[in-house]
């Protein structure tokens, strides 16, 4: 059974921000659709910093450890003295560790990004409007704490140019 929700479409950013302020005060659950990230939206909907950075930290640290481990493992297989250096020459291995740090840092950051934004997905949600990637802003409000009429009133008063009933 789809839950009732309303999608408000805005042509102006300040109208959208006004709607977000009211929705936030009414403690309603909503999602904003925007063609570009705007600081006005970030300020109206404060969010914690993304956990993606922990993936990067883990990836970088894992990269250093794996790069060093691989290089050390390979020299220990034969224990040849190369260019009069110690069997485990740390200085050249810094380069190996550094490159692995960057490589795994990036790969795991990307993995973290995809996990957090829940992509890829096979189909676009039905309520998605193609104008959201051009010049329109959208706000999808789940009508759990308020009736659709109340939500519709908030969106209309804020200046929504269209309001659609959608099921999510």
């Amino acid at each position: 059974m789809p839950k009732p929700a309303l999608m408000g479409i805005f042509a102006y950013l300040d109208d959208l921000v006004q709607a977000l302020e009211v929705l936030k005060r009414a403690n309603l659950d909503f999602t904003v659709f925007t063609p570009i990230p705007r600081h006005e939206i970030r300020e109206a909907v404060p969010m914690k910093p993304s956990p993606v950075r922990y993936f990067t930290l883990f990836g970088g640290a894992f990269g250093i450890i794996s790069g060093l481990s691989l290089a050390v493992f390979t020299v220990l297989q034969w224990k040849f003295i190369v260019s009069g250096k110690p069997i485990i020459p740390w200085i050249p291995f810094v380069i190996v560790a550094f490159e692995f740090c960057i490589l795994l840092g990036v790969l795991i950051t990307l993995t973290g990004l995809l996990i957090n934004i829940r992509l890829p997905r096979l189909h676009l949600p039905q309520y998605y409007d193609p104008r959201f990637s051009v010049d329109r802003f959208g706000v999808l409000v789940r009508c759990t704490e308020a009736t659709p009429e109340e939500v519709s009133k908030i969106l209309t008063e804020a200046g929504a140019e269209e309001i659609h009933k959608v099921g999510i």
């Binding site: 659709f33 990230p37 969010m47 993304s50 950075r53 995809l114 890829p120 998605y128 990637s133």
Partner: peptide, 23 residues
Amino acid sequence: LNWTGTHHQWRHYGWAYLLFAAL
């Protein structure tokens, strides 16, 4: 990847892009 541009997506995306640049 059927990106929709929600504010959640932009939040994580912004961080990831910054971290990519830093790496």
